Simulated scan of single mutants.
Amino acid sequence: MAATPVRRLTDDVPAEVEARLRRMCLGLPDAYEERAWVGTRWRVRTRTFVHVLGIEDPVDGASVTMTFRAAGEELEALRHAGPPFRVLGWGRDAMGLTLGPDTDWDEVAELVVESYCVLAPKKLVALVDRPGPA
């Protein structure tokens, strides 16, 4: 009996994608970058607010995914949004976004800031310029 193909996590992230995320993430107070067990992650204190990695799926093929955190109404909306968003199945507020040629980088920038604000200490969140409620 043949083994079932398994999804594999990889470091295969295009340099331009990583560079774009790096600029967004490192622009936030006290944020820093480090290599993760696979891919690259950006953290505030010891908490990861963005992680980017490659995924090789035997059914869906290769993709690049950004994991991030969300809260409140935004989290609920993203949970039901469908592709390119997906619930990761770990962490009550963890989401994934498949990055590709059609990615809305303005939306990614908003998600990065919100993810940071979900995890950062309040004194650092107060330093972040973000729009208030509509």
Rank of each mutant, 00 (worst) to 15 (best):
R35I: 09
R35S: 12
R35W: 06
R35T: 13
A36F: 03
A36W: 02
A36C: 01
W37S: 14
W37Q: 08
V38W: 00
V38K: 10
V38E: 08
G39I: 07
G39K: 04
T40C: 08
T40K: 04
R41I: 02
R41L: 13
R41T: 10
W42Q: 04
W42I: 05
R43D: 08
R43Y: 05
V44H: 05
V44G: 05
V44Q: 03
R45V: 14
R45I: 07
T46W: 03
R47N: 10
R47I: 08
T48F: 09
T48R: 10
T48S: 14
F49M: 03
F49P: 04
V50E: 02
H51P: 07
H51C: 08
V52G: 02
V52H: 01
G54Y: 02
G54R: 03
I55W: 01
I55K: 14
I55P: 07
E56D: 15
E56T: 13
E56S: 14
P58T: 07
P58M: 12
V59D: 15
V59N: 06
D60K: 15
D60A: 15
D60G: 10
D60W: 13
G61A: 08
G61P: 09
G61I: 13
S63P: 06
S63I: 10
S63H: 05
S63G: 11
T65R: 15
T65W: 15
T65A: 15
T65H: 14
T65D: 11
T65G: 12
M66E: 08
M66R: 10
T67F: 12
T67I: 13
F68D: 01
F68N: 01
F68H: 09
R69W: 10
A70K: 07
A70Q: 12
A70H: 04
A71W: 00
A71H: 07
A71N: 11
A71Q: 11
G72K: 07
G72L: 02
E73P: 06
E73Y: 01
E74S: 11
E74F: 00
E74L: 13
L75P: 11
L75E: 07
E76W: 05
E76G: 07
E76C: 04
A77C: 02
A77Q: 13
A77L: 01
